[in-house]
Nucleic acid binder design. Structure first.
Lengths: 357, 357
DNA sequence: CCCTGGCACTCTCTTCCCGCGAGTGCCAAA
DNA sequence: TTTGGCACTCGCGGGAAGAGAGTGCCAGGG
């Protein structure tokens, strides 16, 4: 796990750790600031409130806790959450029921889009938070087929099927005019000629072909090459498509009861580009990623937490799934779920790939 | 114009009409309740506040005005707005600049989706309200071509191009297994055989074909028919796709400054089905539709107004464009814009159709 | 040396009250 | 029919006061 705020596991003595752990857990559960009294009453410590106050003061000095105002209890800071996540929390297992729910939803769907949608839904349902799902792109993957369909004589719809089962389609404008027959030939040619290669490889080969003898004379070949390059250029910049589910549920959480934070949250959720950016920055990392508060650089919603995991094989990352919620979410419960779902998705896609070959 | 609240144009004498008109206009401009004093000060009436109070009291009795509380001014009711819209407001013309902006945006785009998106954007920009745009469906329109592309052996991507330039695509699951070659043949067959007919007609013919001699023996024909019916059934229920633009801007309006109405508005905007339903209920009507407050049956946002117009020819309605905003929006300015845009869209689509034939 | 009870202090939140301003309704006079 | 006057109502903002919660610190006890 990355040491995101330069924290070391032995920064705190065992008593402080226990206190911090308890405070974070209680704060997650209640959302309120935690006082020394309530901490003492929980029974975990054989200490008086006064003693706990000393420990808490130390934790505050070290930056793990903060006071909303003088006479309020303590609230964990980003740093406190980070420490909790890295060293203190005990991950809950994924219950039989949860496992079944996830498996069931993922199994049932076939089209990749449905799978992703359902994945988001199931995550939202199980965690009651906003789920985020990256659709897979096929940029770095082998193409199975490319087909071209006439919409108007200079508007062609392209359908690219990836080896990973991803389907991308887009209507593009072309300089040349095409007939149905031509397009059929072109589809067949490109698919047989370039099937199994990545879009990038195909583009490079097409460009190389421009210089060849034959291309100069064969008009159909010229059009083929132009269309191919055109298509790939148009499709390539397609970014990860982001699916958000459950944005409605999160607005009912107590932290968003006032108009200001409600509006801010709402606007933040609309800024999909920013979310994409954040998630993309994690896609290289193995395993579960947890970002709290300021770590995500998402300044609009500084009090958010993100739990995300990559799906797809490690050599071929396909996308990310995750949860976006208030910083005080139940990481111990959410994290295993995200993890399990990402594995289920990876498996599913692996299966589909095999099915097709 | 429909008499949506059973109002008749001669329900009010000319003095009452003028007062109502002024109140609505001032309320639209300021958002505040209007008092007899401010009304007297505006100079339009040679009357004292006391006299105006009498008129206002009458208007209140008749249901055109209401008081938020005893010692506040008057605010127009739904009924007041309805009367204003039907009989009192003087539509502003569409300025040269606005006309150019709309024409420009609509001209520039080619793909139908881009057109619709830009249409929504330009409307939001010009009115600073939420715009709603129905994507055209091709249910009731002639089909130009149907193509089938192999994704996996039992998963086929269908691309239907309508004569109106609408492209619909969907991945469907099939019972039969198909090869690329078969699909190519089927595409060609269906397109040549059924091009120019509506989805509904095609479906009926396909079903009739099931009973014919040939279908029983020719295996490819069986698969063709099955795939065709399957496709149409899957695509048909595709409802109007709704595009919303500018949801962010509307949240800054003063009427949504408190958390409750902010949340309610936000949730309402998520309920696309309901919006679709409302707009669909108007699609039969000619010309501009304006719904205020409770008239839309959209109980979540009783203080909203909707200005919408159909685009497409009257014999072949394609969809709706419109504006969703607080009830006190500038109908006189918004309505002509919506109207103009709907005509521009209709023209655009007409052109595209010609281009293709 | 660490823990604990006690105490003074601080800060927020709620409630209550009061007065101001705005606007109405009604009445009597022009 | 219009108008000025006047009493009445209501909402809103600004203190004031009190309750409640929690802390920090200190001095005493194991």
């Amino acid at each position: 796990m990355v040491q995101k705020l330069g924290i070391h596991g032995d920064d705190l003595d065992s008593r402080a750790r226990e206190v911090l752990r308890e405070i974070v857990m209680q704060h997650i559960a209640s959302g309120e600031a935690i006082s020394s009294r309530t901490l003492a009453k929980c029974g975990r410590f054989q200490l008086s409130p006064a003693s706990l106050r000393n420990v808490m003061a130390d934790l505050e000095d070290a930056g793990y806790l903060a006071q909303p105002h003088t006479s309020a209890g303590r609230v964990p800071t980003d740093r406190g959450y980070r420490f909790f996540i890295d060293y203190l929390m005990k991950l809950r297992g994924v219950s039989q029921r949860e496992r079944e729910t996830i498996d069931h939803e993922v199994r049932d769907a076939n089209a990749i889009e449905d799978v992703m949608h359902l994945a988001g839904n199931v995550l939202t349902e199980l965690t009651d938070q906003v789920s985020v799902v990256f659709m897979p792109t096929l940029l770095q993957f082998a193409v199975r087929s490319m087909d071209f369909i006439l919409v108007a004589e200079n508007r062609i719809m392209t359908v690219i099927v990836g080896a990973n089962g991803v389907v991308v389609n887009k209507v593009i404008e072309t300089r040349f005019h095409f007939t149905r027959d031509e397009l059929e030939k072109i589809s067949r040619f490109i698919t047989t000629e370039f099937g199994g290669q990545t879009l990038d490889q195909i583009r490079r080969k097409l460009i190389r072909m421009t210089e060849q003898e034959r291309a100069l004379h064969d008009q159909l070949m010229q059009k083929t090459i132009a269309l191919g390059i055109n298509t790939i250029n148009d499709v390539a910049p397609l970014e990860h498509e982001l699916l958000l589910e459950g944005t409605a549920t999160i607005l009912n959480k107590p932290e968003f009861s006032d108009a200001v934070s409600l509006r801010r949250t709402f606007l933040a959720l609309q800024e999909k580009e920013k979310l994409v950016e954040i998630l993309e920055s994690c896609i290289g990392e193995d395993g579960l990623q947890i970002l709290v508060g300021s770590e995500s650089n998402f300044t609009q919603i500084h009090n958010f937490g993100i739990v995300a995991a990559r799906y797809g094989s490690s050599s071929a990352p396909l996308g990310m799934v995750g949860i976006l919620g208030p910083m005080r979410m139940e990481y111990a419960r959410v994290a295993p779920l995200v993890d399990y779902l990402s594995r289920a998705l990876s498996r599913k896609i692996e299966e589909q790939k095999e099915q097709q070959s």
